Computed example of a mutant assay.
Amino acid sequence: MCRVEDGWRVNVDVVEVARIPDTTSLLATYEVDIDERGELRAYRRVRRYRRGSADDC
């Protein structure tokens, strides 16, 4: 979460496709912009990955 000029920018991880076993589920990180009142302004998916996968370094 970080403060931007006219609100906040938040990164949110969500389960996009739940699978069994859980380790094969697909997750995604969304970048969400909200205004000063907490209203949604915009969002975009910035990353999609399999649960348990290592980050690229």
Score class of each variant (00 low, 15 high):
R9F: 01
D6W: 07
T23S: 12
D22L: 15
E36N: 05
R45Q: 09
L40I: 02
R9A: 13
Y49P: 02
V17Y: 12
D35L: 06
P21F: 09
R45E: 05
A18R: 11
D55Q: 08
G52N: 01
M1I: 01
D13A: 15
T24V: 13
E39Q: 07
V32K: 12
Y30T: 02
N11C: 00
R41M: 11
R45N: 05
S25H: 10
S53V: 09
Y49C: 00
Y49T: 08
R48W: 05
T29V: 05
D13M: 07
C57Q: 05
R48N: 01
R44E: 06
T24P: 04
E16Q: 13
C2F: 13
L26F: 10
V14P: 10
C2I: 06
I34M: 06
E16D: 06
E36H: 04
T29F: 06
V17Q: 15
R3H: 10
E5M: 10
I20R: 14
E16N: 05
R37S: 08
E31K: 01
R41W: 07
N11M: 04
E16A: 00
V17S: 14
D13W: 03
N11F: 05
R51Y: 10
D13C: 14
R19C: 11
R44Q: 09
E39Y: 11
Y30W: 07
T29D: 06
Y30I: 04
V10L: 02
Y30Q: 03
D35R: 04
I34L: 08
V46K: 12
M1E: 10
T23I: 14
T23A: 13
V15E: 13
D35W: 02
P21G: 02
R44K: 12
R3T: 10
V46T: 14
L40A: 06
R51D: 04
V32A: 15
R47W: 06
C2G: 15
E36Q: 02
R45F: 02
R45I: 00
